[in-house]
Amino acid sequence: MNTPEKEQNLLRGLASNDKSAIEAIYRDNYGTIQSFIVKNNGYPEDARDIFQEAMIVLYNKARSESFHLSCQLKTYLYSVCRRLWLKKLVQLQRYNPANESLEEIVAVEEDLEEHQKKDADLSMMEDALKKIGEPCKGILEAYYLQKKTMPEIADLFGYTNADNAKTQKYKCLMRLKKLFFAHYKT
């Protein structure tokens, strides 16, 4: 069993996108989740989707400032996956109330609501990025996500100098902001 310190470390690793932490969490928990889903009207590949979504919930939680895990990681993941899967079953109309038993779980409803909101924000930004098209998308991603410098970007996208690239980046940024906030505020 993991000690609380070890779990904290794993979560810190998760927040910084550390693959060994991700792998450790998978190894410890995946089997339980898979057998839960297969027992409850699902296929192994459903388990992959659900577990991945739960890992994203966990990631967002680990990155938030007010982060606090009040129970064991295992229990938390199980609860999230369970909630996600039952929701999916209802959607697929495969839900069978007999599956609802009194197992030990923790309340995760709030976390999932937050997750859903984050997910919606995320797809808004992704949509906006898609809409601005190339080269804007490429330039902004290079600058803000890959943290490339302006001279590098000028070189990459064929601008004569860093200042030109910077002007272009600014124009792209304004367009992206406009698109994003147009959706966000409605």
């Binding site: 991700i22 792998e23 984050k118 930004m125 803000y144 994003f180």
Partner: peptide, 26 residues
Amino acid sequence: FFLQQLNNVGNIKAYKHSLDEVENKL
């Protein structure tokens, strides 16, 4: 706020990529 959102997109993208790689390995 906007920069925060933009960063989130990048982070999640990188994170999902790691998840995929770990899944593949396992």
